[in-house]
Simulated assay, not measured.
Amino acid sequence: MLKVESAWKRMRYWVSAHVVCDFYQGLVPASIPFFVLERDYSYAAASGLALAATLGSSLPQPFLGILVDRRRLLWLAPAGLLIAGTGAGLAGSAPGYPLVWALLLISGVGVAAFHPAAGRDARRAAGGSAGAMSLFAAGGSIGFFLAPALITPALLAWGAEAGALFIPPAVLMAFVLWRHQQRRGVYPEIGAEALGRDRWSPFLLLTAVAVIRSVVGIGITTFLALYWIVQLDATPFLGGVALTAFLVGGVLGTLAGGRLADRIGMLPTIRIGCAAAVPVLIALRLVPDPEPAVAFAVLAGVAVNLPFAVVVKLGQDYLPARPGTAAGVTLGLAVSAGGLFVPLLGALADRHGPQAVLTVLCAVPLAALLPALLLPRPDPHPADLESPAAV
Rank of each mutant, 00 (worst) to 15 (best):
K3Y: 10
V4A: 11
A7L: 12
K9M: 14
R10Y: 09
R12D: 10
W14C: 14
A17H: 04
A17E: 01
C21I: 07
Y24V: 02
S31R: 03
F34M: 01
F35W: 08
F35S: 01
E38G: 03
E38L: 03
A44W: 01
A46S: 13
L49Q: 09
A50H: 01
A53W: 04
S57W: 05
S58T: 15
L59A: 07
R70Y: 03
R70D: 04
G80Q: 12
G85Q: 13
T86R: 03
A88R: 08
G92P: 09
P98R: 01
A102N: 03
A112D: 03
A113Q: 11
A113W: 10
F114R: 01
H115G: 10
A118W: 13
G119H: 14
A122G: 14
R123S: 15
R124Q: 08
R124F: 07
A130R: 00
A130T: 15
A132S: 12
M133S: 07
A137N: 07
A138I: 00
A138D: 00
I151H: 08
T152W: 09
L156A: 10
L165T: 00
I167D: 00
P169Q: 11
M173D: 12
A174Y: 04
A174I: 08
V176A: 12
L177G: 03
W178C: 05
R179N: 12
E189C: 02
R197P: 00
L204V: 11
L204Q: 00
T207H: 08
A210N: 11
V211Q: 10
V211P: 10
S214E: 08
V215N: 12
V216H: 12
G217Y: 12
G219D: 09
L224V: 15
L226E: 07
V230E: 11
V241G: 04
A245Y: 10
G249E: 05
G249H: 02
G249N: 04
L252Y: 06
L255H: 06
A256C: 07
A256R: 01
G258I: 14
M266C: 05
R271N: 07
R271V: 04
I272Y: 07
P279C: 13
V280P: 13
L281F: 12
L286P: 06
V287Y: 08
E291Q: 08
P292T: 03
A295G: 04
A297N: 10
L299Q: 01
L299M: 13
V304Y: 07
F308V: 00
V310P: 05
K313G: 10
K313H: 09
L314A: 15
G315R: 09
Y318P: 03
Y318E: 02
A321R: 14
A321W: 00
A321H: 03
R322W: 08
P323H: 09
G324E: 14
G328C: 04
V329D: 02
G332I: 15
L340V: 00
P343F: 07
L345H: 07
L348F: 05
A349T: 02
D350K: 03
H352F: 14
H352A: 15
G353F: 06
G353C: 06
Q355W: 09
A356W: 05
A363Q: 07
A363H: 09
P365S: 12
A367D: 07
L369H: 01
L370K: 03
L375F: 08
P376I: 05
D379W: 02
H381G: 06
H381T: 06
A383Y: 04
E386H: 15
